[in-house]
Amino acid sequence: MTITTDLNTQLSKSNSRPQNSRSKKLSAALLLGGAGLAALGLSRRGWQRISLAAAGAYLGYEGINQTRAFSGTARVSYTIGREPEEVYRFIRDSANWPKFSAALKMDPQRNSFILTLGRPFGMKIHSHAEVTDEQEGKFIAWSSLPGVLEHRGVVHFFPAPGGRGTEVSVALEYKIPGRMFSKSLALVRGKDPEQSVRETLRVLKQIMECGEHPTVTGQPSGKRGFKGAALRVMYREPQPEPPSAPGEAQLAGD
């Protein structure tokens, strides 16, 4: 697999997704379980109906998804109301990274950066990567260095029509170990690669356009109870709510 800095050829590349019999069995089990939960949900009343049905639909969706191995491509495009040069410079300066991503760090030893993916149960995958090509204000391409996690991609900065700033387009390919379960759990926790990229770009946009990142972490609430706590997990909201210092940008990810 080679990656070029040409977005279009990259994205049109067919995406092979090998299957194996184990993943097919799991997939069938998830689909059945999903249908069961959905049926149970529809037989209940009130919130149980909705959440069971939703959980069922989710498992069913996962079941369909499990027939794919956990490698793939992601592409996300976001318009940020700043000039391409500004966005490029902001991203290129690693001092800005903590403002929009908790996953990116500069490696002080080597001329590379570290991408850290959170995994369920506290495990983390670190991956070293380096910039392979770039043109000021136009694009940055990167690739992972040998390791468990493989990824490479390119960020383009296109001027948006009508003076609306910059279309920041990220296209990447990845291969993540752990396969099925890491994916379903990662998805529950909102760590699906495409969604992670989207959330990171969203925070980048918020920081660049209004200098702060909106948050509801740390606000008061009434009694959540078991149901409320369960819903917070489903809605990927922090649980329990940690205090956060005023004036600080929230980090992307959680």
Partner: peptide, 27 residues
């Protein structure tokens, strides 16, 4: 402080909750 909380369909209660704090610099 006192606040009106949603506890489910047709279920509301006035509860004692924490006072809100500044969470972001523009609040």
């Amino acid at each position: 402080m006192k606040a009106l909380c949603w506890q489910g369909k047709n279920k509301l209660s006035v509860e004692s909750v924490d006072d809100p704090k500044i969470l972001s610099s523009g609040d």
